[in-house]
Every structure is written in C-alpha cells, then in structure tokens.
C-alpha cells in the first residue's frame, strides 16, 4: 500500500516538474509573442497590465511600412536579404557537405580523423574573432556589405556541421546498397543519385534546415560585415530598434516574431532526423 502511494507521489512530482520545465522553456518566447501584438502603451504601463485589453497587428503593419505611424527601419529588405543569403548559402553548403560527408562515410584514407578534426576546429573560431580578419580581407576584395560576402562566409560556417550530419546519414546506409547498384549496371555516380541519395534524403534535408537556421540566426559576423539595406540581415536589423537610451519594445517584439516563426516551423519539421543524425554521426565513428 505504502509503495503505491509513493509511486503516485513520484508521478505527480514528475508532472509538476515537467510543467515547471515547460513553463521556463516556453514562457519567455510566448511573452515576446504576446508583446508583439500589444501596443507600446500597454507594454510600458505601470503597474503592469496582465490581461491584454486588445490585441492587434499594428506593430507588424508598422514595421512593414503600413498603417498610420511607420517606422524608418526597412524590415522588408532585411527580410529579403536574410532569405536570399540563408537560402543560397544553405544550398551551396549542402552540395559541398554532401560531397565531403560522402567521402568520410564511404572511403578509407589516411589521417581521416585528423581531417575531420581540422574541419570541426575551423568551426570553433569565434565569430567575432573571425570577423576581424575577414573584415580586413573582405574590404580589400570589395566584399564588405554585399550579399555575396555573407554567402561565402555562411557556406564556410555551415560546411563542418553539415559534413558531420551527412556523414552520419550516409553511414546508416549499408555499403552493399551502392555495390549492388553498381553490379546492376550503375556507375558510381548513378548509384549515388538513384540509391544512396534517395535513402539519405530526409537526413540531408534536416542538415539543410540546420544550415539554414545557422545562417538565418547568425549575428556576430553579420553585425560587423553588413552596413546597409544591401546586405543587412534580420538579426542585425533587430538592433536598429535600440536607440541610445530607448528601446522600441513593441517593434522589436514584432520583428522577433518574424525571426522566430520560420525557425520554429523548420525545427518542427526536422526534429526526428536531427536527433538520429547527431547521435549516429557521433557515436559510430
């Protein structure tokens, strides 16, 4: 009897803990989202107004240049820059990553662990530390404040992790699949595209989403290497809302929502493959 109650207490405790946990994880984001739909007056009210009196899309209209009072921040072009830079760099990183990941998964060569480590170490260079020399080199090449300049950097940033993930996914496919296809008359190239790629497709897709999000969310480099509407991305643009002493909480929250939403949707799409890829790539060397 005693152990039964003990068990039930344990269960309840579990649920309470889980609830608190979810609150800590979810509440900050939800609060920002809620703020995005509230007028500044309500946000700044003292004492706090807990129940919103009215929710509206005004803040979004404002930052996209509609409505009565517009904001001088060109969010649509930041959005476009972010999208172009992230998509292009992801596509290129995926191609390069597939090629490299395949090499690690399928070939034996000398110093393999060494090359892999070298790749990973290139990723460890802190963005801000890397931004200094890139700033100097890029300004000589005329790449400062260009989308091209950012795309090249994000490709480099995404390659190591993309290779890690894709390597893991290709490793899950038995080597015999491609061998069977070659015996069946395929060239190695055909065997890859007809057999191995379709089997690793979902994994490659999640590596792509991961790469996209890295580019989409990156700040340290972009904040130093972009200047104008030519190349400024959303995370950098977010800082436009902070003037010396004032912060436009409503506008910033609305912009935050714009940055978060694609990330959340994409996370939801990949979560399953991502876990598999990370663990597999890591554990099975």
């Amino acid at each position: 009897m005693a152990s039964k109650t003990k068990k039930q207490i344990g269960k309840v405790a579990n649920w309470i803990l889980t609830f608190v946990l979810m609150l800590v994880i979810g509440l900050p984001g939800l609060w920002v989202v809620l703020t995005a739909f509230r007028p500044n007056r309500e946000i700044l009210a003292k004492p706090a107004i807990w129940i919103p009196e009215k929710l509206s899309l005004d803040n979004f209209g404002k930052i996209f240049g509609y409505g009565v009072d517009q904001i001088a921040i060109p969010v649509p072009s930041y959005f476009a820059n972010s999208l172009i830079i992230s998509l292009t760099s992801t596509a290129i990183a995926l191609l390069i990553g597939m090629s490299g990941g395949y090499a690690f998964a399928r070939f034996r060569f000398k110093r393999k662990n060494g090359y892999f480590l070298a790749l990973m170490l290139s990723r460890t260079v802190p963005g801000i530390a890397l931004s200094l020399p890139i700033f100097m080199v890029w300004s000589r090449l005329g790449l400062i404040d260009t989308k091209m300049g950012m795309i090249i950097i994000y490709v480099a940033l995404n390659i190591p992790f993309t290779i890690w993930l894709i390597d893991g996914f290709f490793r899950q496919i038995p080597k015999e699949m491609s061998e069977a296809a070659q015996v069946d008359g395929c060239t190695r190239w055909q065997a890859f595209w007809k057999i191995e790629f379709p089997l690793a497709k979902s994994g490659v897709a999640s590596a792509g989403i991961f790469a996209f999000l890295t580019s989409w969310n990156e700040y340290a480099l972009a904040s130093q290497l972009t200047r104008s509407t030519d190349s400024k991305t959303l995370p950098v643009g977010l800082m436009d809302f902070t003037a010396q002493f004032t912060i436009d909480w409503a506008g910033m929250s609305a912009m935050a929502v714009i940055i978060i939403v694609p990330a959340l949707i994409l996370t939801f799409l990949v979560q399953k493959h991502l876990i598999a890829g990370l663990t597999f790539g890591g554990v099975k060397g």
Partner: peptide, 17 residues
C-alpha cells in the same frame, strides 16, 4: 519537440527575450 525549440532560437533573440 518543445524542448528543441530553444536550440533553434537565434542567440540574438534569446538575448533580447
């Protein structure tokens, strides 16, 4: 799934939040 969300947040957003 909920647990994975913070991983995907832009650090700049986390900071702002």
């Amino acid at each position: 799934t909920i647990m994975m969300f913070p991983m995907m947040f832009s650090p700049i957003l986390v900071g702002y939040q």
